[in-house]
Design a protein around this nucleic acid. Sequence first.
DNA 1: TTGTACGCGTTATCAT
DNA 2: ATGATAACGCGTACAA
Lengths: 340, 340
Amino acid sequence: MDSLNKDQSKENLTIHDVAKALGVSASTVSRAISGKGRIGEETRQRVLAYINEKSFYPNASARSLAQSKTYNIAIIMPEVRDLVDMPFFHTCMHGAEEVAQVNDYDLLIVTTDGSNIKPLERMVNNRKVDGMILTRLYKDDVFVEYLKNTGIPFVAIGNSEDKNLVTVDHDNYGGCRELVSLLLSKGIKKVAYLGGGMEQTVNIRRYEGYKDGLEDAGKAVDTSIVYTNLTSKIQVSKAVEELLKTTTDCILCQDDYICDEVVHHLAEKGISIPKQMKVASCHHSKLLDNFPVTITSLKFDTMEIGRKACQVLLDMISGESVDRQTLLEYEINLKESTKM
Amino acid sequence: MDSLNKDQSKENLTIHDVAKALGVSASTVSRAISGKGRIGEETRQRVLAYINEKSFYPNASARSLAQSKTYNIAIIMPEVRDLVDMPFFHTCMHGAEEVAQVNDYDLLIVTTDGSNIKPLERMVNNRKVDGMILTRLYKDDVFVEYLKNTGIPFVAIGNSEDKNLVTVDHDNYGGCRELVSLLLSKGIKKVAYLGGGMEQTVNIRRYEGYKDGLEDAGKAVDTSIVYTNLTSKIQVSKAVEELLKTTTDCILCQDDYICDEVVHHLAEKGISIPKQMKVASCHHSKLLDNFPVTITSLKFDTMEIGRKACQVLLDMISGESVDRQTLLEYEINLKESTKM
DNA sequence: TTGTACGCGTTATCAT
DNA sequence: ATGATAACGCGTACAA
């Protein structure tokens, strides 16, 4: 047992060792492994059997150098303080990893805030990755700007006006629009909107969906019950406070994070959901499952977006043509929180 | 502006290009960059200035091949379904990444369940990393077993009886012990314990702390109010149900996840905390911040454990001697949930 | 102090 | 179908 392991680890084999042992040349071994180039089926099997028995594995660095390919991709994550309550990015990450693994790629994580491109530069300059996934897309995105100039393949999760970008996103716009339409058709009269971080395209799209959803129902946007600059819990609760003085009968939250705060604040004030106020969220997460009342929300398959982004990226890397924009489906879950 | 970028990207430079342009040899350039080997200060500056101006960066694969070092480390994460409500691992990951970045290392993530070592084998066999961090430690850990045989440097987050392992952990034992002592000293009479997953060493240590905390106060463990095999929400609520029939006046939860369920179930049953039942948790997370009542808990700096684990690993990789076991401090936060 | 020459382990080109 | 041989770009003994 022990000696068996020792045996295998007698310093790593190379294709030359394999070649010598089999009385063939190194290039033959290489061909047998890669499948590239013509090779006799018999010798191929012989080589494969041998490397399997001796558990030989090609050296990644050497292959990397020879092919100018790293078999690594990077995923760019927002900075830590944002992440604690935001499982979205991590779920994405795991989706991407799943696809990467299957394709013999490894996933390398890079955390950075919205403006610091240093970590990306290092990756690119040192050629440590073959491509990148941007998990977040800003309005005038410095990462995008940088990556475009480098020419390295990358896909962004989100929506951009630049139709040359390769993006993967949930249909936030369509989802919010349909959600608003639905709420209004059920008899809700006045839907307020609570959001923040309008420099992120996802939030822009949701707000646009909200606006067009109202329009579909022949309603105009009432800017006095629209908040698009909430960045802290306190601001959210203050907004709720103000809304309570109006005739608003439903609060649409840009995301689960804001929704969480809204629900808490309403509970604190003794306002019952949905009797005195309806609540809905443009994004679902486990956060919303912890309330006594179930919350109407848009549901997206977050893992799937990670998978898809990675798949598209790998396609780009291998030179295949890919769709510029990919839009993934949404699901509307009507729950108690908007019951009339 | 545009031409400037084009200029830089005229196919990547090599040390030979730099050498030629400066009228020196490639090895001189190499020395200037690495700092290894004697080199004239003047030429060193000249080289450094040039590569800085032309923004030359050494090719990672080539360096990797020459040095047999990848400047990558991997962090092994538990499988996805466990993760959604467990920010611990992701926070660790970001801590590790922070330290890795500073040391010019990159972090590669690998997700796998407790038994599948295939993904690790690929990493090791292909020599894609210089070391690994295990974020979880099982009683008879197959990963540990495998990694020990390969000889690759690795550090495990958790506690092991095998004192040859290099581990980094919070002082779960000491924390739980002190917490229990404290609760009892405040007048609490009967502390029940709710836990699960005893194949993970962290949970074993917490339970041991609980036991010894009782002992410190001269109390014996009452196994009828101890649950160490709860793996689902339903099981947790059933356990709570049974405890309510006893004279238990405080429930100590193994982690935030279990605590979350306990608090919810008590609320559902109309049992008020802390009046009718005290509650404490051996692990704090944001999960506990969402309750109307603040929860007494042990608090660990999760990011710090990731940082520390990474630092120790990097030390091992560079051949420095490291402490076998590192124990990080805990903090006891006494809150409303255990108020007498 | 600096340059030469070779090795790291693969892939790819060109013969055979 | 297979085998030499030359890259790939960097590090490093050894020589000068």
